[in-house]
Design a protein around this nucleic acid. Structure first.
Lengths: 129, 129
DNA sequence: GTGATGTTCAACCATGAGGTTGAACACGAG
DNA sequence: CTCGTGTTCAACCTCATGGTTGAACATCAC
């Protein structure tokens, strides 16, 4: 699982969406396909700059460009989003599980409290509030 | 709605997770809190480099560092993940909606020339190669 | 054909990101 | 107080990123 190729694409996708301009492009393409010049119009930068952004999205697998005469409309490829949400959800689950384990630990400690305690388990800091 | 501050943090969070080392740190911290040296141990780079990564995560709001004597354990702050999943899900919904609109359009077109149908659904799955 | 439109290519520049090393600081343990 | 551990600060290097401009393609419309 988590093989290196996926990890690589995951990096590219996260990185692609780290830029606000690119997020806007994606937002726009989620609504409708658009050509480079259409995409560039609202942005205050050169067409070539937008072309580079578009290429980043393409390399990340977020966008696919087709052909229509001299135009090359871009279309959103939404499946790769699952890669991200998949990763995120996995972490979220682990994080949840961690608190369940902590609760169990606290329960055990509460029981041991009846006994005695010399070993004092205050290593790895934590949740002292 | 989409105010600029959120957009900024969104950028930082996406950017933070764009790096495989940082994703590993987050994965590790999802399981348990850890100090800098503990986090650095498995990685083949200097402690200072890991410290920088950790700082990036901190600035993104993904990690919070507490204090325990001379140690500064890091703990995962999972809420910010919602910012990302929120953004992503919004795009996904828009993208879905787009196809519903397309389907409606195709339906209307089909009615307009309701004799010669038989063509059948090559809607979202793909295009001929 | 010529011309307009849309896209790409290439060179260049400034800044920031990811890494290094070395020194300094903070604190608890002997 | 001194030593060891853990963390941070600062200077530095390299390379990728995001932007620019200018020229070259490619393709439709006349």
């Amino acid at each position: 699982m988590t093989d290196a190729a996926d990890d690589d694409q995951l990096s590219r996708v996260f990185s692609a969406l780290a830029d606000p301009t690119r997020r806007e492009l994606v937002a726009r393409l989620a609504v409708e396909d658009a050509t480079l010049t259409e995409l560039a119009a609202p942005h205050d930068m050169s067409i070539q700059a937008v072309a580079k952004h578009l290429k980043v999205l393409e390399d990340a697998g977020l966008v696919r460009r087709t052909r229509d005469a001299q135009r090359r409309p871009a279309r959103l490829e939404a499946e790769v989003l699952d890669l991200m949400t998949g990763w995120i959800e996995r972490r979220r689950r682990e994080h949840e599980a961690r608190y369940q384990r902590l609760d169990a630990l606290l329960d055990r400690m509460a029981e041991d409290e009846d006994d005695k305690d010399h070993d004092e388990g205050r290593r790895r800091t934590g949740e002292a509030s």
